[in-house]
Design a protein around this nucleic acid. Structure first.
Lengths: 347, 347
DNA sequence: CTGAAAGCGCTAACAC
DNA sequence: GTGTTAGCGCTTTCAG
């Protein structure tokens, strides 16, 4: 019942020659008679012959597959990154196996095990928020399987890393708000590495302009999602002196915040300017459209994949390679009215 | 340089026994002395032994990988479907290789070739808009590799198919608008199979209530994206008698339409009610929140993967299987004010 | 209870 | 120019 794929043996048998000859003919080796070559190629085509990659991989001891581990696939940023990864992997003849952790350390360990078992040639990973230990990744290094960390990285591992310049992204955003006249600029931060960087940028910008860093304006988010944004809006609006601007660190958190502010009967940006690290299309479609820090996801995916491939190649040639550390620039996309000049304050 | 993974041979050598014995010990075969078994298992653990799946696959002639082809991964619906697919694939011990076509037939053929070459055990595919021929898929069938079509399907192939009930989704949406008092209900449709079904639902609902189907209210979209939505809004608003409600067939088209209507200085839903086939979170965050036809992407992914796996299993046991045809129900999510009663007309 | 050997599909070193 | 052989890592008869 099972359709048997055509093998070299089949071709050899039909032509009364050996598999070795067939293999050579198909691979265009020099020492082969034109007639045999011709016959082999024709029959191969006729039978829809396709080399079995599994056999090939067994021999060469590599799989032509790279593994990708991300926290969540239903997420604009990550799916964009994956798109970039697939773009270069495809061109290089690699397939991509994707796993998601749902921000769970346990799940991450499990998926790493699966990929290790699959003998992927390399691993691209964006760490889950929970991940504080790295034994599961060190196993890859022991087997000399290159790893490239992207976006959610850590300092503990000596591998290549690709990140977005969150520090500068936040700095620029806050500076923009300051120059527009906002005075009580809040930040909603998380616990991940990226959040720390953004917080650093936040502090640096305020310091540059001699503005105080007030504890009451620094909010700690947990889930950083839509519902939490709404909750934060209400919390802020009930403060004696609410912030007049907020930098958020996640897509849907910003959207929730906007919705929440409006639910409180307040106006954006007159009562509160909001800047998000956002999916541009969502940010554009909102009322008012949100100013946001654009993160180059596609480019990050491409770069991460390119880096990984270079390391895989070096590996196969037994050449050493140095882990690199690339930081991609963000772009502040200012949308009309979303963080316009705060007239009242300036007058 | 290359870290050599531990093989059965390594264990056998160190223990002075043969690979066969090691293999049996590891697999818990009965006929094995407790001491040997013990020793083997301990050493295996100590050396971090992992069976090489490639060798295993070569032997069993399957890859434990399923292929997924979709038009686009940066897309809420499709990434949700993938999430559902991975959910069940993961639990069943399968890995998932994802390819995107960007709605290009040529790319689809190419990716199908890659997956065929990779000897995936099964294929899940949502066809590109351009696809009118199916030779690339028939090759899978020739090799008895099960295929399950989902979302973007076709009639030409005798495989299992999972779809959303677009007909009923559109019917319910239009009926809702009619019952709210809307009179000039437009539709923006595309060329894909799904659009036809939605158009059928549109017509059926109008007919049920004795309302005419007017050519001027049926719009043909091409790209069905944000920008096109804005353009349609302007076009509609400049009509002598603009529609008072619209059913759109794509996520961002609806969002663009909403933005466009507002840019024309009109109000939603007073001047025009909009219903989209939408990502719920986007629809909620808009002003006003859009009513939308919810499509169960995660469930679709799960069901498609389950179906495929059942067919793979049947295949391996040389059991025949019948292609199934599953249709998932949509859900009309009505959001306050987005398609509220049209008072003016009712009075 | 365990070893020897064949074979999954393919390649490459070595013959002739 | 082409056949022979060995081997990638593993499982599975068949012997003993």
């Amino acid at each position: 019942m099972k359709g048997t794929p055509v093998t070299l043996k089949d071709i050899a048998k039909q032509l009364g020659i050996t598999v070795a000859t067939v293999s050579r003919a198909l691979k265009g080796y020099p020492d082969i008679s034109p007639q045999t070559k011709q016959a082999v190629i024709e029959l191969a085509e006729k039978l829809h012959y396709r080399p079995n990659p599994i056999a090939l991989n067994l021999r060469k001891n590599h799989s032509n597959i790279i593994g990708v581990i991300i926290p969540e696939i239903v997420h604009n940023f990550f799916s964009t990154v994956i798109s970039g990864i697939m773009d270069v992997a495809d061109a290089a003849g690699y397939s991509v196996i994707i796993c998601q952790t749902n921000e769970s350390y346990t799940q991450e360990v499990k998926e790493a095990g699966v990929l290790l078992g699959s003998r992927v040639d390399g691993l691209l990973i964006s760490l889950s928020n929970e991940t504080k230990q790295f034994d599961h990744l060190e196993e890859f290094m022991r087997l000399n399987t290159p790893i490239v960390l992207f976006d959610k990285i850590c300092d503990e591992l000596n591998t290549s890393k690709i990140t977005v310049d969150d520090y500068e992204g936040a700095f620029t955003a806050i500076e923009h708000l300051i120059l527009q006249g906002y005075q009580r600029i809040a930040i909603i931060k998380g616990h991940a590495y990226n959040s720390m960087e953004r917080f650093r940028g936040y502090k640096a910008a305020l310091e540059k302009y001699g503005m105080p860093i007030l504890d009451e304006l620094v909010f700690e988010g947990a889930k950083l999602h839509y519902e939490e944004g709404i909750a934060f809006a209400k919390q802020m609006m009930s403060m004696p002196q609410p912030p007049d601007a907020v930098l958020t660190v996640a897509d849907w958190l910003a959207v929730g915040l906007l919705v929440g502010v409006k639910q409180c009967g307040k106006k954006v940006p007159q009562d509160m300017a909001i800047i998000g690290f956002n999916d541009w299309q969502v940010a554009t479609a909102l009322e008012p459209p949100l100013t946001s820090v654009y993160q180059p996801g596609f480019e990050m995916g491409q770069l991460a994949a390119k880096t990984l491939m270079a390391e895989i190649e070096a590996n196969e040639k037994n050449q050493p390679y140095e882990p690199i550390n690339q930081v991609l620039k963000t772009k502040l996309i200012i949308r009309e009215s979303s963080s316009a000049k705060k007239e009242a304050v300036l007058n």
